[in-house]
Amino acid sequence: MLRAVTSRALHLLGVVFIVSFVTMIMVDLIPGDPASVVLGEGATSEQLDQLRQQWNLDDPLLLRYVESLADLVRGDLGTSVITNDSVLDTILERLPVTLEIAAIALVIALVVGVPLGIWTASRANTWVDRAGLLATSLMISPPAFLTGLLLAYVFAVRLHLLPVTGWVPISEGLSDNLRSALLPGVALSIYETGVVARVLRSAMISTLSEDYVFAAHARGLSRTYVLLRHALRPSLIPLFTVVGLILARLIGGTIIVEVLFALPGIGNLLITSIQSRDFTLLQGVVVFVALGYVLVNALVDVLYTVIDPRLRNRAAA
């Protein structure tokens, strides 16, 4: 167990090192000088030099990398070169928005996708299954911005049920907050629902052909019981793999929907930091998202062993 945890922690550190290094190189490759962008057209060369010195921009890349790593390990993501605010604070301030719509999307995907997957698998090759396949392929075809636009048009513009754009924080009332989060959450959930239903369907169909499912039927257990008690759990492994991917996608990939609905989340923060050439902020956001990926993956690995006892010894070894 200790070894498993240690190897996880090392993995985490490795990812942080690599991601921060790659981000730094990429930021460095963006044409233009951050100092002149920040100071604007009319800056004198003394001012520029001063700023460049302050940010160690003239140091070799590797040296800057090692310095920023040292900060990173201390949990210090630095301060924004534009606003001078703490990068970590800025991220933490935006995080709840992204997490909330990601959570809404994931909950919808699971609540709708899991029963749909089970149902279509248990009726494989019947019209129920074929209708389900058609529905899920419609869900995974259009890109999120299209579903987002469509939903906004129908529910906000036409029916006036929900606000078109904008964000109401929870502090200003839960129901208004949910109303502002609902459309983006649903827009994000549609694709993921299709993915969840399809993955679970195919996993269940293969589980349903296992000997132990046949044996469970032969013991006179009810169809529903066999489906939920014997076939569902072994089929969750591929589902959890996919949920891990979905979570990762939602943490980092709500960008389009956040921009579309003008939400002050991580995705929008990333866009702003790129547009304003705020390289410390950009680096911080990327490292933060990468950390999220790694943590989600670690969680999924732990969940595997909860589902399948056969994996427990291996995980501990």
């Binding site: 000997d211 132990y212 469970a216 013991r219 399948d308």
Partner: peptide, 15 residues
Amino acid sequence: SMVFQDPMTSLNPVV
């Protein structure tokens, strides 16, 4: 009731 050929595959591995 029935006893199956292979008890490895006829028992559910996760129950």
